[in-house]
Design a protein around this nucleic acid. Structure first.
Lengths: 214, 214
DNA sequence: CTCGTAAGTTACTCATGCGTAACCTTACGC
DNA sequence: GCGTAAGGTTACGCATGAGTAACTTACGAG
């Protein structure tokens, strides 16, 4: 039986990406520790020492996965966010690109979001921080555009919440393949922008006074 | 040297919870596979066979952790959400309780949210589904209270986004010990409720027409 | 044609860590 | 005070899987 993925003896330039695809799939399925180098190799249509020859040890393989998928998602967003657009349009475009990546690349997102823990957390944390910074900056410009001034410190946690909500919803999307990414992005955009929009205009929600019960 | 956690020869009723504490801490730190039974035992101030005697195999220990922490967080929220309150107040109380649990119990939350994958996903999925359901139901009642009707399917992803935003903010909170959890909950409440509030009133955000550029 | 090198393999070593067997020892009920 | 069960231990068997050594085979440049 011939493994479907490989006509034998492929050049490195095609075999190596195959290995990364296989690694991403396995890491997504089982997590870093439970995934085995043998399984990754087998899925790539090759035997274990080839993986070591091209990608190195297991840690290296994992980092390579994080790097490739991380670059992909960042690039997907950067490609569509035009600084000349209005802030809400920027957010909208970015969100669509993000959910598009997740929908087209579920395993990659799973590895980035769910599996990158422990010693590998830093690899992802940097990118996440950059993303949040960008969002916070965008919000800051939105505030100024409305003639208000707000300290950046107040916007960072908001940016955190937005990114977090996106990530969580992306996770949900990964388990609901029927949902259109566009639609999910629209839903999220609605709640965050209507909410953020009011906040930026100075409208705030307040709880009832803690002492008096109504 | 005497292990600080244990005066020797403790009764099961005190040792067993200690083991669970240790297991939660180790699983949070390293994940299911990387955490070792020996380390869990050592952290509990005891040797490995004791863990097997009280809690069983590694899988059983993990499930026990999920069960305990899951019950805790659900209980913390249920305890403070009074169905008689207005929907926004319900959400506010629930969020404060949730942030309180996460802040006081980071490891437990980490195990529930990040580590429960693969074969264990089902254990947590049920509880998470219940939580989402509760939030979605609350939103549904809020909609009806405003004289509109909305299908539940539209509210579920919103509920998911709320939970995700909360988790993300909890992470941020961990890196900013000066911030009061109460205040963070307030910020999140602002954006989600102002946003959800408008949505429930039928106000929607729309992108510019895709064809015409302004 | 032929020879070098890139592509690929089988078959191992070795560490790690789960799970258990067999064995101590302290408290406390009678 | 003494026996028994509950609390606790050391030391091992055994499977799994990372990483490697040593070898084989196809392709293409000269």
């Amino acid at each position: 039986m011939l493994a479907s993925v490989s006509a034998r003896r492929l050049p490195r330039s095609v075999r190596e990406p195959q290995m990364l695809d296989a690694a991403v799939a396995e890491f997504a399925r089982l997590g870093f520790h439970a995934a085995s180098m043998d399984d990754i190799a087998a899925r790539a249509g090759v035997s274990k020492p080839m993986v070591y020859a091209y990608l190195g040890a297991k840690d290296d393989v994992f980092v390579a996965c994080l790097h490739r998928e991380g670059t992909r998602v960042m690039q997907a967003i950067v490609d569509v966010v035009d600084p000349a657009l209005a802030p809400d349009e920027q957010l909208w475009h970015g969100m669509r690109a993000f959910f598009g990546y997740v929908a087209a690349n579920r395993d990659g997102w799973s590895v980035l979001y769910r599996q990158a823990q422990g010693p590998f957390a830093d690899e992802v944390a940097t990118m996440r921080a950059r993303m949040i910074e960008v969002v916070a900056g965008m919000l800051a410009r939105a505030v100024e555009g409305r003639g208000r001034s707000s300290r950046t410190t107040d916007l960072t946690p908001l940016a955190f919440a937005l990114v977090g909500a996106s990530e969580s919803l992306a996770d949900w999307l990964a388990d609901h393949p029927d949902e259109k990414p566009e639609l999910v992005a629209g839903r999220l955009m609605n709640v965050v922008w209507l909410g953020a929009g009011q906040l930026l205009d100075g409208v705030t929600w307040r709880p009832l006074a803690p002492a008096g019960r109504r």
